[in-house]
Design a protein around this nucleic acid. Structure first.
Lengths: 325, 325
DNA sequence: TTGTAAGCGTTATCAG
DNA sequence: CTGATAACGCTTACAA
């Protein structure tokens, strides 16, 4: 059996209270007692039972992070950053990779609702899950609108769409195609589409948006991208939904004998450190992952402390000028 | 206040025991009682307190995953896969990204030791932390030797080193340089170096290994890679420690006016789905992430159930033939 | 088929 | 400066 506080107390010939005091540096204690207790703890290799403490305090110091998949570079870097900041703030991280499976997400949510975590950061795609309606749990959303009560932290997707589109127009492109997720997903990312379309029209150009499901396999994505070249052989530039898609589009362009950027310009989205290392030439819009993470933590903390928050926090993006557009 | 079991009991006019029975489908209950209790739970929007249950059962259904960083494609995909499998097995996942910081890792470990998790999967680089010596907690290691008592799940690094080296030799390279982590790290990955060196010698060639610290920034890595070309202008091929490094080496090769594969062949390592999507041309050794994850779960489960395990589980790798080597 | 009561390992109140 | 004891919310013998 693993030793418990009582065992330490017995061995040190003091009460449980005293041991607890030593453990938490609380109240007045003689140095002698402190030493005695420490010795007993060392001898037994005692580790306090975190769960018992959690029960009493009604607090777990755990934060849940619900995202589609940590294997995706954007969500991977986001999780990594959040974990670092949360750790500094005294929290540990419980992850749930929903893979955009509404069932799995709902299951996670229901379990986390049970005072398993002190707060929740969500960035999943299924925002219509019942449990979000009244979570009785501090929640913040990243880049997703869940419901009116949940504050959203997002980068400035409108600005990103504008930056990308004007950049391509400035570089001489007229026939520019945009790829994005399904329109019915009411995500802030749809503002990119809006910015793209507005910017195109403002320049007297015709916007064309291809819908690419976030979930589907790369081969299926490539099939969609091939359609672009088949249906619009005169396409001059593509503004992609993310950097991985941008890479796939560049590959497909190659199949059609197009050199980038001579025969086709490409601008990606996300600009994670990893993708900028691996594909430094890719022109892309960089999301401020660090700033978003800090803001998420700050707003979540406010929620936990029952302080008021804004509904939305929008952080600026920037263009990473590569060689592809 | 969030409602507790007792509130449900009161509202349904039954005892706590009965509510608990309904909650867990245990024992004999009249349908009438069941319905009554369910109605009360619904009315109160009751969610059982997981922590209280954990305390009683002395079991959290949480598994800790300690890895350097989930932002790295290999560890990201590994975490993603493990999370999926663990979820199916009824576990949730607590992550700790040590960033190879021994202090942070030790802190995590100490906290997780406190019955915060039912088991631990580690793949960090600092294997000399005290707490691993006697963890009193089921632990398995991935690709790292922690101590004699902790089973290791790894891919066949020797085979990987052999595959890569013979592949390059078969393709006509003679001056082949290998990059790897610091030799003092007693990781299974060092077997690649061993395989590389043995294979080179067996073919009458001279092995040259450059040490590249896993931790350092990409710019620092590139500096090391530049040295390779400066000190060995006649290098014909590089067998890199991982795919990201392989990408960096290809970039540096470009700086030196070398075309890949004509003027330089490159073979990477890891072969994650992401990297194969983004850089499909990169020849690489594919680690069996799914198989390793399954094995890790299986062995961890055995440990949890106090069944005997082997010391080491080695899984085969395969070569992904790209265009770079 | 249902209820009573003890216990999981802490912390905190209150008394000494 | 230290110690009894109740409480955190649940589960499970044991009783009825």
């Amino acid at each position: 059996m693993t030793p418990k506080l009582e065992d330490v107390a017995k061995l040190a010939a003091v009460s449980k209270t005293t041991v607890s005091r030593v453990l938490n540096n609380r109240g007045y204690l003689s140095q002698k007692t402190i030493d005695k207790v420490h010795a007993a703890m060392a001898q037994l290799d005692y580790h306090p039972n975190v769960v018992a403490r959690q029960l009493y305090k009604n607090q777990t110091n755990l934060i849940g992070i619900l995202l589609p998949s940590v294997a995706n570079p954007f969500f991977g870097e986001l999780t990594d950053t959040l974990e670092r900041l949360l750790y500094q703030a005294g929290y540990k991280v419980l992850i749930g990779n929903s893979m955009n499976d509404p069932q799995k997400e709902a299951a996670y949510l229901n379990q986390l609702l049970s005072r398993q975590v002190d707060g929740l950061i969500v960035g999943t795609h299924n925002q219509h899950i019942q449990a979000y309606q009244n979570p009785g749990l501090p929640v913040v959303a990243i880049d997703r609108v869940m419901n009116e009560d949940i504050p959203v932290i997002a980068s400035d997707n409108y600005q990103g769409g504008q930056l990308a589109t004007t950049h391509l127009i400035d570089r001489g492109a007229k026939k520019i195609i945009h790829t994005n997720g399904p329109e019915d997903l009411k995500t802030p990312a749809q503002r990119r589409r809006s910015a793209y379309e507005t910017t195109m029209v403002a320049h007297g150009l015709t916007p064309i948006t291809y819908t690419v499901d976030f979930n589907i396999a790369p081969s299926a994505k490539k099939a969609v991208f091939r359609q672009i070249f088949q249906e619009h052989p005169d396409v001059e530039a593509v503004f992609a939904a993310n950097d991985v898609d941008a890479a796939l589009i560049q590959q497909v362009a190659g199949e059609f004998g197009r050199q980038v950027p001579q025969d086709l310009m490409i601008v990606g989205y996300d600009g994670t450190n990893l993708m900028r290392e691996v594909l430094p030439n890719l022109t892309t819009i960089v999301q401020p992952i660090e700033a978003m993470s800090k803001m998420a933590l700050q707003v979540l903390t406010q929620r936990i402390n029952k302080e008021p928050t804004e509904k939305e926090y929008i952080l600026p993006v920037k263009l990473w000028p590569g060689q592809t557009g």
